[in-house]
Amino acid sequence: MSQDGTGVDLDRSLGYLLKEASSALRIAMEEVLRPLGMSVTHYSCLELLAQRPGLSNSELARGAFVTRQSMNVLLQALERDGYVTRPAAAPVGKALPARLTPRGRRSLAKASAAVRSVEVRMLAGMTEADRSEAFRLLRSMVHSLRDGS
């Protein structure tokens, strides 16, 4: 409870702190990606396609934490600008698998370096043991929430 007894004490809420950290990370990433003409979602889409070529719009949307509609708009723009390619017709079902073009790969390389600089800054005050423990704890939290335990 907060000091006035009306709700959660934000200074002691891990959920609030995680949201604050997430927001600060997103802002820092947007700052380094903006000069490259990218948003965090744009970067996430390219990164997902580099790691798993051929993902569909729905799979990319889930991976980037956006709606299918938002991802579809982004994919159309990325395709128009030559960063990704998709077949004219779906090979199976309705999904149009997307793949990075050489231009998309070059753009991703610049963005990845920029994002890595943000991560290095975020972890600067931590030892290797601290970083390992942070990863372990965060993975455990995600696992607990996804499994409903």
Results as ranks from 00 to 15, higher is better:
L108G: 03
A114E: 01
T101F: 12
V115S: 03
R52F: 05
R146A: 07
L36Q: 12
A61G: 03
G63S: 13
H42Y: 12
L33N: 04
A129N: 11
R116P: 01
R86E: 08
S132F: 05
L10R: 13
P87S: 02
L25F: 08
G54F: 02
L18V: 08
G82V: 08
L33G: 03
S149C: 04
F65M: 08
A64T: 08
G54W: 08
Q3V: 02
G63H: 13
L33W: 09
R106G: 07
R80W: 07
S58M: 02
E133Q: 15
V66H: 07
M141P: 00
L48F: 04
M126L: 14
G104P: 15
Q51W: 04
G63A: 06
S56Y: 01
Q3F: 04
G54P: 04
G104D: 13
L10E: 11
R136L: 01
L18C: 09
L123I: 01
E119S: 05
L36K: 10
L100F: 05
D11G: 15
R68T: 08
K19D: 10
L55R: 10
R105L: 05
Q3P: 00
G54A: 14
E79C: 00
M1L: 10
L75M: 07
T6I: 00
S56H: 03
T85Y: 00
T41W: 04
E47P: 01
Y43T: 06
M38I: 03
G104F: 03
L138I: 06
G7N: 12
A77G: 08
G7W: 14
R62N: 02
A77C: 02
L123R: 06
A98T: 14
E20W: 13
L123G: 01
P35M: 12
L25R: 09
Q3W: 10
V8N: 06
L108W: 08
D11N: 13
L46Q: 05
M29C: 06
P97V: 00
R12E: 08
L108C: 06
P35S: 11
S117R: 15
L145C: 06
S70F: 06
P53K: 11
V142I: 11
T127P: 09
S107W: 12
R34P: 00
L10H: 11
R146M: 01
L14H: 07
V92E: 09
G7V: 11
L108E: 07
T101E: 13
Q76C: 02
V66E: 05
R52D: 12
Y83F: 15
L17D: 12
A90E: 12
M122F: 15
L123F: 10
F65S: 14
L49C: 09
T41S: 00
G15V: 12
A89N: 09
V120S: 08
G15P: 04
S107G: 10
A61L: 10
R131Q: 08
R116D: 07
Q3H: 11
S44H: 06
Y83D: 14
A88W: 10
D11K: 04
R80G: 10
M29W: 03
A24N: 05
A89V: 11
L96R: 12
L145V: 09
R139E: 01
L138D: 00
